[in-house]
């Protein structure tokens, strides 16, 4: 199970700083310890989060096993022009979850 919620105001004035707040559902299994049966639990974490705006990267985060389960990630961007903000979470299985938000910029 892997879903994500993003909170961002959909409209902003040109030059305004917009905050993007996200929560993703992920166990962030840090692994490398034996389970009850003595088998090593493999690491399974979101290791990378990336945001683009109008196709250009605006923010990136490398996550280690010290980030909590169901991690919260928030950052900011300056509203430049109307366009899509694309968010991508990628985990150790190679799976990438994508969320796209439209930011409408006035003025």
């Amino acid at each position: 199970m892997f879903n994500a919620r993003v909170t961002m105001k959909p409209e902003a004035a040109k030059g305004e700083i917009v905050e993007i707040r996200t929560v993703a559902r992920h166990p962030m299994e840090r692994g490398n310890y034996p389970d009850a049966a003595g088998r090593m639990v493999p690491r399974m974490i979101i290791h990378s989060f990336r945001a683009t705006y109008g196709g250009e990267e605006i923010f990136r985060m490398e996550l280690g096993p010290g980030v909590s389960a169901n991690p919260y990630i928030a950052f900011t961007t300056v509203a430049t022009e109307t366009g899509d903000i694309v968010l991508e979470w990628t985990d150790d299985s190679g799976f990438t979850l994508t969320r796209t938000l439209r930011l409408t910029v006035a003025g």
């Binding site: 923010f59 985060m61 490398e62 010290g66 980030v67 928030a74 300056v78 430049t80």
Partner: peptide, 17 residues
């Protein structure tokens, strides 16, 4: 964690858990 920012952030503020 390690965060990579650019001037497009407007301010250098990040949050996580």
């Amino acid at each position: 964690a390690r965060f990579h920012l650019s001037p497009r952030a407007g301010k250098a503020q990040v949050s996580t858990t």
